[in-house]
Nucleic acid binder design. Structure first.
Lengths: 249, 249
DNA sequence: CGCCCTTTTGACTCCACTCAAGCGTCGTGG
DNA sequence: CCACGACGCTTGAGTGGAGTCAAAAGGGCG
């Protein structure tokens, strides 16, 4: 399809998916590795979709037809047990890629935590692109490797850390992620509820709450409203990781 | 180095790395996706190395210079906390790839559980190959995606399952893995110690032992020596997963 | 046969869970 | 503008499942 895009055509495509070239998250997102020409090709395949707070994006077991890129908002990835027990396996923020697992069906459910915009593309189209844009697959592999490291850290946390160590690790990793994305890293913004944090850390809401209180009383953190945490004593907080091999990733 | 390999040279290379073409694990390993010509190129880069039981293959934090393929034996991947607490993030068996995380340093330690043969290659060489063998990177991505799914299952296990559910899940996944590799899937062979199982499941040795006893008393399993488990009541065992969304992966 | 190491069993403890009530905040409607 | 209700968060009291510490039993190997 060798074509030259007219101004009119440009405008139309923009309506469908904004303009990838000046996408807010392009710098940090996976599209950052693409050449302008490739970006243009990609743009035809994507569509920006909005999800309300709490809305399901897809559910575990469904055919994995779409891939996503988080543009704004926040997303939780969830695995359920039939009796309702929930494990959140990850939180996604702007720039994060959703749907790396290339199986026939989704291996987990995804829900918007707050109102969120996602950039959606059909997996079939994407796979065709990957053949012609090898760099893309390379970047995807890097992304997967990174997630794998995070998953292993999380296994260590879930299998071996105490509640205080879990919360300290969580707060520090949120802070570090914010900094990596060029956002303020000290008063840490909690996008998610106590229940979400609990389900991510393998605890109960009550224990998360008690642990927040414990850290506050120890003057390690200060709660500025329910969803803002000031990290007061970074040294103490780092020490609470059980001196983990952190460096995060 | 444009060279045509003479019979003599062939023999020498074979000594270095066996013959990839009739490698015992080629069918299941990552090399299965390579053309004969590519395989030949790859063969020059690899060396077969042996590790004794308990021997370290590499440690977390070391520069990640090598990649491996498990040829025989068994390997455990470990993350440590400074005070000695251990979390095993995975067990590797023949055909499994070791070193997907493409960071500067290893994100975890790897140790041979029993005497093991591994196929080792320098990461630098490998990365050069990946450019010329795109299929290889594709397969690697598939491998990474598969591991990611397994990691998420493990997070669910560590964060939300009881000790009985954990052991039941573990035994079933061992059985399924054996079957996938064309090995007998019912008397399940435990290559690893109770301590290793405990550190994988986020429990203590004592709890693992007690849980084995509990399952044995319930006539769900039978212990035939310390490292062989017969799955007697598969239905009951499956039920103990808390009806997990299993299918394993 | 005897030693050593792993596994099992036992008794007790404790951290996080459960159940339950109280508090604070935000949004809605009068 | 304030009262009310709903929801999420915190706090409290008591329980329980897995951890800890300790010792016995079993298995493998020299």
């Amino acid at each position: 399809m060798g074509l030259t895009s007219s101004q009119a055509e440009r405008r139309q495509l923009s309506a469908a998916a904004g303009t990838c070239a000046d996408c807010e998250i392009r710098r940090i997102g996976i599209c950052g590795s693409l050449e302008p020409e490739e970006l243009e090709r990609m743009r035809r395949l994507v569509r920006e979709v909005h999800y309300d707070a709490g809305q399901s994006i897809f559910s575990e077991g469904e055919p994995a037809e779409n891939l996503f890129n988080v543009v704004s908002g926040a997303v939780r990835l969830i695995k359920f047990l039939p009796d309702g027990r929930r494990q959140i396996t990850g939180f996604l923020f702007p720039g994060d890629f959703l749907g790396i697992a290339l199986n026939a069906t989704y291996a987990y459910s995804a829900e918007a935590i707050v109102g969120s915009k996602l950039c959606r593309m059909a997996r079939r189209d994407m796979e065709a692109q990957m053949i012609s844009i090898p760099n893309f697959e390379h970047r995807l592999l890097g992304e997967a490797a990174h997630e794998l490291v995070a998953a292993q850290d999380q296994m260590l946390l879930l299998g071996r850390k105490t509640s205080v160590e879990r919360l300290a690790s969580f707060l520090l990793s949120l802070s570090q992620r914010a900094r990596r994305h060029g956002l303020p890293d000290n008063p840490v913004a909690l996008t998610m509820s106590r229940t979400d944090i609990a389900d991510f850390l393998g605890l109960t809401t009550e224990t998360v709450s008690r642990t927040f209180t414990k850290l506050r009383n120890a003057k390690v953190i200060a709660l500025e409203g329910n969803d803002t945490v000031r990290l007061v004593d970074m040294a103490a907080l780092s020490g609470l990781l059980a001196g983990d091999d952190s460096a995060d990733s």
